[in-house]
Design a protein around this nucleic acid. Structure first.
Lengths: 225, 225
DNA sequence: GATGCGATCATACCTAGGTATGATGTGGCC
DNA sequence: GGCCACATCATACCTAGGTATGATCGCATC
């Protein structure tokens, strides 16, 4: 959104410390991509097989994966599934020398950023990587925000979470008290702790955080619109 | 969500009144798809060209479009762009006899549900249509909910909307009053009207509706987390 | 056994939210 | 001119929210 990626522009390097992971069994292609990405200031890591990628430690910073579909051992598509099952969410760009349409469709359905047939133009690859890094930056910032939120939520006691769920569902203190068998004053105390621990000063903000966390009690009484 | 679409099952007709729009210049293919879809209880509409589709009136109910890429006049991909620019959001399934990978990738990036090479298996097409109709149902229910919401919001006066923005941002009545130069009592009156017109009985619900509408004032004071 | 945390509740007090009644003013429309 | 919707505000009254103080209890840890 902030910067329309302008297809065809040459020097688009979204984040200077981004890492491009290149997985290809052909050393010549690895080298060629390596120099291509380095030429625009991106870091690279080279892998000759999926195993090497899975074995080594992955970068902590932003990055993306450039992956040959036809690989020794598992195929690129299988690797895509394996990575996502392991919670590794780097955007993936596929390359192939002998791909077909079903293969490309399957990859795109599974969330690939792009699927390039070899030989491809350098600029097409750079555009794809640029889009992938943009997507990764987006994902990372969302994920970071979610983690902070979850960390705050973790500091709540069980009771506090329970109260938070009902309060953000729109119930009054006395209703919450009735539902979980407490006095209203106790609910107020928990509610106060929730506000403090969640770092908010208004119910509105608490509701938003609860929504982001998915912890609002989904109502069964009150409100029939 | 309600009914897992079970890939590979034959008689999967998600919604009985769904319409499949078939756009192909080959009458034999139109006829063949027509009978395929009718065999599982779906309605169909046949078009020999993009112009026919754009010219006629589109169904109001749920549906999807099955589109040949190579068409007289504009290409299927162009039609995809044209439709989305016109706000027509039926999910699209592409078919092609002479497609290539870049074409399929472009179509998928633009949101196509699937991209099938001719000849395809009937079951593959049915699975694709099933997925497309599922997606359309999802889209329609979300869109309907959003429309209802917006209709409620439309009934608010300018002042009420202003107050709603500040209130759902977490400001107290007296703060809102100070910001827009009113007495607190007047803010309370507007606030009450907002609650009534938006059909909510708790601030929590109002905040959720405001979020869905994107009308919360994004805070400049209060809250530094 | 002492310490500490979480949970519970009471009393007391203050602020914030919500509504009813009534009144005034403005601008648009028939 | 009269009507109506919108907006404004006051007084009055009630409910809901929020916090401080202080106290009791259970449980786990040191």
């Amino acid at each position: 959104m902030t910067r329309p990626s302008e297809k065809g522009t040459s020097g688009a390097a979204p984040a200077q410390n981004s890492v491009v992971m290149i997985v290809d069994d052909d050393a010549a292609i690895r080298a060629s991509l390596d120099s291509l990405f380095r030429s625009i200031g991106l870091e690279t890591r080279l892998f000759g097989s999926p195993a090497e990628l899975l074995g080594g430690s992955l970068p902590n910073g932003p990055g993306c994966i450039v992956l040959d579909v036809r690989l020794p051992g598992v195929s690129g598509l299988d690797l895509q599934g394996q990575l996502s099952r392991q919670g590794i969410e780097f955007p993936i760009i596929f390359m192939t020398g002998h791909g077909d349409i079903p293969m490309s469709v399957r990859a795109m359905k599974a969330g690939a950023v792009d699927f390039l047939s070899k030989p491809f133009r350098d600029q097409d690859m750079l555009d794809a990587v640029s889009a992938a890094l943009e997507r990764d930056a987006q994902r990372r910032s969302q994920s970071a925000a979610k983690d902070d939120l979850r960390a705050q939520y973790e500091t709540l006691t069980a009771r506090e979470r329970e109260v938070m769920g009902y309060v953000t569902a729109g119930l009054m203190n006395k209703q919450v008290a009735g539902l979980i068998g407490l006095s209203e004053i106790t609910v107020k105390i928990h509610r106060g702790s929730v506000m403090r621990k969640m770092g908010v000063r208004s119910l509105a903000d608490l509701v938003r955080k609860a929504e982001a966390l998915g912890v609002s009690q989904t109502r069964s009484n009150t409100d029939q619109t």
